[in-house]
Amino acid sequence: MTSTAAPATAAKAVARHPRRRVDRHAVGAFILLTAPTVIGLGLFKYVAIGWSLLLSLNDARGTLELGSWAGLDNYAFLLSDDGFRSSLGTVVAFTAFIVPVTFVASLALAVLVNRVRRGRAFFRTAFLIPAAVSYVAASLVWKMSLFNGLPSGIANTLGDLFGMSPVPWIGTEQPPLYWIVLVTLRLWLQVGLYMILFLAGLQAIPQELYEAAAIDGAGAWQTFRRITLPQLRNTSVAVMLLMLIAAFQAFDEFYNIFSSGLGGSSTAPVQPPLVYLYGIAIKDQNYGLASAGAFLLTVVIVLVTLLQGRLVGFGRKD
């Protein structure tokens, strides 16, 4: 009797004074379980970003130690540098292409896959499996085969069927055909991921809404506009945000398609901010300037994300 009564009163005491009575065993377990994450994030995020912030205020070339104090010189240089500014322009243009195209394509595929009963698993896999391919391997296929600009390239072979002469897709700057190469590559790799998210969203829409619409005699397009799209609002916002953040961090395909290599990126017609920063950090070893660039890019991404949130927020009112 006494042995059961004692824990009961202890439990009552804990419940009455939750702040005063700290369970030591819980604290020990908490420390053990969170230690790897707390230490790891501390080192690779807090210390890294803190040190990098200091470096960005210094003239640190070829050394990871603090060089000489430079104040905001690195930031001022980047803001007036044509290379950095045009890299921001490039990534904005890229985002403006890739986000709507991927959004529409992944939504369309999700709606179509959701409609069929037979072969659904096959189609889903076919659209999703490119997600297992790296940007490097995809760049290789796009550059050396699909859009290699030679008569043997797949795009040119297909064009030949329609009587088109071979087009140097990557080498042409006017008009900038390389955008087609970059956008189709990312589309191929990513559309399946977003299609999966839209499929989950579609399957969460109550069936009764569609039944009610059918009774009211709504057409397919009307049903899509009045029921499917509004019901997918949360999914759409999440998908667009993911696409936007991913596009702003584009690096792999630009690096590999344009063969920047370690030798330099002067041959590339366009380079996004991360390729530009890579050049400064690794090739020039100017860690102060590269750190400043990383923080400026972060500010741009946060601003664009907030702007997107505002735009979608306005859309909600009407």
Binding site: L55, F248, L274, L277, Y278, A281, L297, T298
Partner: peptide, 11 residues
Amino acid sequence: PGSVTFVPTFV
């Protein structure tokens, strides 16, 4: 954002 931190992480 993850890949922006490649400079600080490298440091």
